[in-house]
């Protein structure tokens, strides 16, 4: 295992996280309350307080390679109970944003999110069957939630056709401008 290199502190990364999240990372004193209350802690590879510590150390590589930010369910329990009033959930959100911009996404979860947004982009609203289809195509996980189909389809809770709204082109343009802006920024 590598030892921590305290002199390799990536100051720009710390500033980027602080600016985008609006949080002062140095106020974290590592009590671990965020980890204690996190519903996803048991499946994390790096606990929330360790993510916070890695940001304090400016260890960008560790932060962006962690799966945890992608498993975070954004329940904000960490933020609600932080004794230093840090909106930790926003920091986790910010880490995802930075990771996405730098091409470091966690494939399965991001595939779901991308599938979801793709249906919104083309229909104006999310389209559940479409999301499932796209997700299966992206991941090859064709068995996903097949057990639920016999429950949902007869109850007509999953419309076969998408709701196409009049303004779907306007929504689509939001995505296009967003993608253009991101490329321009890069």
């Amino acid at each position: 295992m590598d030892s921590i290199n305290l002199r390799a502190r990536d100051e720009a990364f710390i500033r980027e996280v602080e600016k985008e999240s609006g949080q002062n990372i140095s106020t974290c004193y590592q009590c671990g309350n965020c980890t204690a209350g996190c519903p996803c802690g048991p499946v994390y590879d790096l606990q929330v307080n360790q993510i916070m510590r890695a940001i304090q150390l400016g260890d960008k590589k560790t932060v962006l390679e962690a799966a945890s930010p992608w498993l975070c369910v954004s329940c904000s329990t960490c933020s609600a109970r932080c004794p230093n009033d840090i909106d930790v959930a926003r920091v986790m959100d910010t880490v995802r944003h930075i990771g996405r911009r730098e091409g470091k996404t966690k494939y399965v979860i991001n595939a779901f999110w991308d599938s979801f947004l793709q249906t919104v982009r083309f229909c104006g609203r999310s389209y559940e069957l479409g999301i499932m289809a796209l997700f299966m195509l992206r991941t090859g996980r064709f068995y996903t939630d097949l057990d639920l189909a016999p429950r949902m389809l007869p109850k007509k809770k999953m419309p076969y056709l998408p709701h196409l709204i009049r303004g779907k082109a306007a929504v689509s343009r939001i995505f296009k401008r967003f993608n253009d802006m991101q490329q321009y920024d890069d």
Binding site: E20, V73, S74, D93, R96, H97, R100, F112, W113, D114, F116, L117, V120, S126, F178, Q182
Partner: peptide, 9 residues
């Protein structure tokens, strides 16, 4: 929903 805010504020 979550996919959007997880992607970008």
């Amino acid at each position: 929903s979550t996919p959007a805010h997880a992607t970008d504020t």
